[in-house]
Amino acid sequence: MNGSPLWLKAHALLVFAFLYLPIAILILYSFNGQGVGGFPPRDLTLNWYRILFNDAAIWDSVLNSLLVAASAMFIALLFGIPAALALDRANFPGKALFRRLVLLPLILPGIITGLSLLMLFRVSNVKLSLLTIILGHGTALISVATTEAFAGLQKLNRAQEEASLDLGATYWQTFWRITVPNLKLSIIGAALLIFTLSMDEIAVSFFLIGRDNTLPLEIWGRLRRGITPEINAISTIIFMFSLAAIVLWYRLRTRAEVTSEIAAELVETAGS
C-alpha cells in the first residue's frame, strides 16, 4: 500500500461505493415501511417479508426458476464437458467453427440467442413453456461448462489417463475414475456458475416464456405494474443465498488446494 498515490486509493474507494450503493439501498429499503424511495428511511418493518412469504405467485416462480436452473445445469454439463474433451483431444472437420459457435452465446447479447431460438421453436411448432426456457438456458450456458472444463483439462496430467488405460481400464472407467475426479473443481465451479447465471437470466427467457414465469420474469412483470419493497425483500433473500454459495465454493476450493498440496508433499516424500 505504501507509495501508492492517494488519488488511486480514493478512486478505488469510489468505485466500490458505486458498485455497492445500489445493493445497500436495495437491502436497506426492504425494511422500509414507507416504500422504495424517500430519504431518510423510516418505520423500519419486517412487513414486506411477511407479505412476501404469503405471496404464492413469487414462490411458484422461484420453484420454476430452480427447476429451470437445475435442468439447464444438467444439459450444459452433459454437452459442455464432452465439448471440452472434444476440443482438447479430437480432431474433426469444422473444429474451429464448432469452438466459435459453442462460445458465442457467452459474448452475444441475450436477445440474439433468445430470438433465434424463438424462430426455431416457431418453425418446428414447439409450444413455448418452461421446457423451451430450459433448452435456451442449457444451450447458452454450454459455453460456461466448456470454458471451465477446458481450463481444467489444460492442467490435467494426461499420463494418469494413459496409465489407467495401459493397466486395462476401459475408457468409461478411466473417464469416471481419473478424468472426472481431476476435473472435479472445474465441474463444481461451472455447475455453481451455470446455476446462478440461469437463476438470474432474463434476456433469453423473455422471448421463450410460456405460461409459467421464472423469478426474474415475475419480478419484471411486477416492475411494470408499479414497485413495492417486496421486490427488495426477495432480492435480499436471493443475495444472501448467493453469498452463502460463494463462501461455500471458497471453502471447497481452499480445502481442495490444501489437500492437493498435502498430496503433492506426500508423493515427494515417498519418492525421495
Binding site: 445493493i23 436495495l26 446462478t196 432474463i202 419480478i219 416492475l223 414497485i227 432480492s235 453469498l243
Partner: peptide, 15 residues
C-alpha cells in the same frame, strides 16, 4: 456484485 441479479440492480438504480 455480479451475484446480484442484473434486473434487480437496474431496479435499484430506478429507486
Amino acid at each position: 456484485p455480479l451475484w446480484v441479479s442484473y434486473l434487480v440492480r437496474a431496479y435499484a438504480w430506478k429507486t
